[in-house]
Amino acid sequence: MDIRYLEYILALAETGNMTRAAKKLYVSQPTLSQFLTKQETELGTPLFQRSSGTYTLTPVGSLYAEYARKVISLTDSLEKDIKRVSNTSRIRIGTSASSALQMLSSILADFRKYYPKVELVLSDDNLRSTSNLIFRGELDLAFVTANSLEQYKGQSIELKKEEVVFAAPSIHPYCQKLSGSRNRTLNSQQLLEHFDKYPFILQHKGSCIRYLVEDFFDKQDFNPTIACSTSHAQSICDMVSSNIGVGFIPAGNEVSTKQITFFSLEPRIYRIHSILYRKDLIMNPPHKYLIELAQAYVNTSWNQS
C-alpha cells in the first residue's frame, strides 16, 4: 500500500530540512519540493513555515502529521493481519454433537465468502476425545456440548445452555397418573421411586449428557439397568415411545408425541454448548470470524432456554 507521500511530510517535519529529508527518503530534493508544493496547493494552506531553510509545521501541518502517523500505523497493522490470514490456510475443528455439525454446515458458506482459501478440517468424536485433542494441541477449535466449563477455564467460550429432560413412555403408570397435569417435574427421589425398575437408554460413555446422568446417578447411589447406549437423541425417543425404556435427551430434541411424557428435573440439569480452543492459539481473523458466525447462529437459530 503506497503511503510514501505521507512519509515525505513526516520526514520533512522530523529533519526540518529539505536536503536532509530528501536524503533520508532516497528521493531528489526537487521531487520532494514539488510534492510539498502540490500538496499545499491542493489543501489550500501551507503545511510548513519556511525560515532560513528550516521547515517548521504549521497548525494545519501538525494535524496532517498526526493523521499521517495514524494512517501509517493502521496500514502496518493491516498488512500484518493480511499476512497472518494468508498463513492461516487450515483450521482444525472438532465437534462432539450433531447440533454442532449442523451449525457448521449452516455457517460454512458465509465463512468461505470471506476466507475462500482457508481449509476447514473437521473431525467428530465424543466430548472426552475432542477435549483431549484440544489439550494436546491437535485441534485449533472445537464446538462441543459440555457438562461443565470449569476444567476449560481460559480455553472456552460459552454459546448457550440447554436443559436436559427426562423422557418416559406415556403408558407408564406414573405418566398415566399425571395425564392432563401441567406439573411435569421430577426430583431425584421421585424419579427413582417410579422408574428405578425400568431399563435406561443412555448416551455413549464420554458424551456430555452421559457425564451429567452419571453424576446424577452417583449422587443417588443408584446403579441403573442399561438397555441400550446410543449417540442419537432421536433413537432414544424412538425406543422410549416403543416402551423399551426411559432416557435423557436435550430439550431441543423433544418431539410432540402422545407416546412420550417429558419431565424437567429438579434441580434442572443443563448441557453447555461451547467453543473450546487450544491454549497457544493465536486468534487470527479467520478464527474470530468463525466464532462470530457461530455466536450469531446460536442467537438466531437456537431458541431453547
Score class of each variant (00 low, 15 high):
L74G: 05
F195M: 01
I82T: 11
L108T: 14
S105W: 08
K80V: 04
Y5K: 09
E266M: 08
P285W: 00
K83N: 08
P267R: 06
S241D: 01
G137E: 06
F222C: 12
V71P: 11
Y55I: 07
S105T: 13
P169T: 12
P286G: 00
N299C: 03
F135L: 13
P173C: 10
R90L: 11
E79W: 12
T75V: 08
S89D: 14
K153A: 01
Q189L: 10
S73R: 15
L290W: 01
L192C: 04
T19N: 05
E119G: 03
I9C: 02
A97Q: 09
K23T: 04
E254S: 10
A22E: 02
K38F: 03
Q190N: 10
K23I: 03
F166H: 03
L36I: 03
T225N: 14
T37R: 15
A233D: 10
V85A: 12
C228W: 14
F248I: 00
Q102I: 10
P199R: 11
A146F: 00
A294R: 01
M283P: 09
S207M: 15
A68Y: 07
Q49H: 10
L6R: 08
L6D: 10
Q151A: 01
Y211D: 13
E292V: 04
I236H: 02
P169K: 12
I291C: 09
E79N: 07
T257C: 03
D196R: 12
S105G: 11
Y289H: 14
S274K: 03
R184H: 06
L25D: 00
N284I: 02
N87A: 08
N126L: 06
I269N: 03
D81V: 10
F217C: 06
N183R: 05
E162F: 02
S235N: 13
R271N: 12
R278T: 03
L63R: 15
Q39G: 04
A109D: 09
L141V: 01
I249A: 01
L127R: 09
K117N: 13
T261D: 11
K161D: 03
E266I: 15
E40T: 02
L12N: 03
G16Q: 03
V121I: 13
Y64T: 01
A21S: 01
A13S: 13
L276T: 02
I93N: 07
N17E: 14
I291M: 09
F135K: 15
L57N: 09
S52C: 06
R268D: 08
H194K: 06
P46K: 02
S96F: 10
S188Y: 09
S106T: 08
K279N: 05
L293S: 04
Q234Y: 07
A11M: 07
R90W: 04
K197Y: 05
L12Y: 11
K205V: 15
L74M: 12
